[in-house]
Design a protein around this nucleic acid. Structure first.
Lengths: 170, 170
DNA sequence: ACATTACCATACGGCTGCGTATGGATGAAA
DNA sequence: TTTCATCCATACGCAGCCGTATGGTAATGT
């Protein structure tokens, strides 16, 4: 419901109907609607960003290799499912905005770290990380992601080259 | 209402109350709620992107100068007001998504044109334009825009340098 | 066999919002 | 002055959704 129609359509009666139960059941598992909504951001974080950040830590090689690895990892994944819905929600709920901002920070900190490892100064790395990460966000939010894995990989290669060609290992 | 709470809170009765009138008045000016919603995308386009694209056409100098001009124009503006709400809406409404995509296309086509003018091949310019434009989108949607004009101008300069340093006029 | 726990259905009251029907009120035109 | 168009208020029926109260069923422990 969140992904397909937005947070305002996460309602208990339609939800119960979609699950083939009644809302009497819902109120057994959750205190109320708000209680359900509060559980969503954490669910999202564990499912959507923890795996990626774990992957980059485990990737072999130098920072550029790690970048390539993370890009290919993302390119092979199915296009985003939750990020857009969470961002849409975050626009109108400060608490959710904070949760999303925390995720953005974690992701961008990783990118920052990689660019510093690649030899950039702290401020330069910070900006380059923004450029790096915002490309992801932009592609998702404008739904400009190519449909085939091949095209996504090609774009990833292009992106890596453009963002690292002036660095030592690039 | 759209900006502050999202499209699902654009309801006729709360809206009428906020305006100090009754809904009897609303149904004089609009056929129904859907009729109001349909008018919003066009309102947004005229107000939010037409001025920027007109500005870049009128800017003097070469493509790099035009880029600098547009960045400074945006930096001096107040941070975005409608884009985020429209994108949040577009996530869940195909018609709105099409309208937003059309705006994205117009903006990105302008960027593409500038990079081609600066000497890039069509595919290179297309990618560079994405990198350019998605930075905007990312900054908006993550609410990472600095509060002061000075900081925004500084970031703009940094961004221009990074995205054009390998071009002839850069 | 009985009681307890876990899980779900039914039924209710209340609120909010949509759309329509109808009735003013005001100003311009004839 | 009468008529008509414009703009807004009032009042109604209807539907969707929330949260609670209450009852039912199946499994489990004693």
């Amino acid at each position: 419901m969140l992904r397909e129609h937005g947070i305002d359509h996460v309602k208990v009666e339609p939800l119960a109907q979609r699950l083939g139960v009644t809302k009497g059941s819902f109120y057994w598992h959750f205190k109320n609607r708000q209680d359900l909504l509060k559980s969503l951001p954490e669910f999202w974080a564990r499912r959507q960003t923890d795996p990626v950040l774990a992957h980059v830590q485990a990737a072999p090689g130098g920072p550029i290799d790690k970048m390539r690895s993370i890009l290919e990892f993302i390119a092979r994944e199915d296009p985003d499912q939750y990020d857009n819905a969470m961002r849409a929600w975050a626009q109108f709920d400060p608490e959710v905005a904070a949760a999303v901002a925390a995720i953005d920070d974690r992701r961008m900190a990783t990118a920052r770290w990689l660019f510093e490892e690649a030899g950039l100064s702290a401020p330069d790395a910070a900006f380059r990380a923004r450029l790096w990460y915002f490309y992801d966000v932009g592609e998702h939010v404008t739904r400009d992601t190519p449909d085939t894995v091949e095209e996504r990989l090609e774009r990833a290669a292009h992106r890596l080259k453009l963002l690292t060609s002036d660095l030592v290992s690039g």
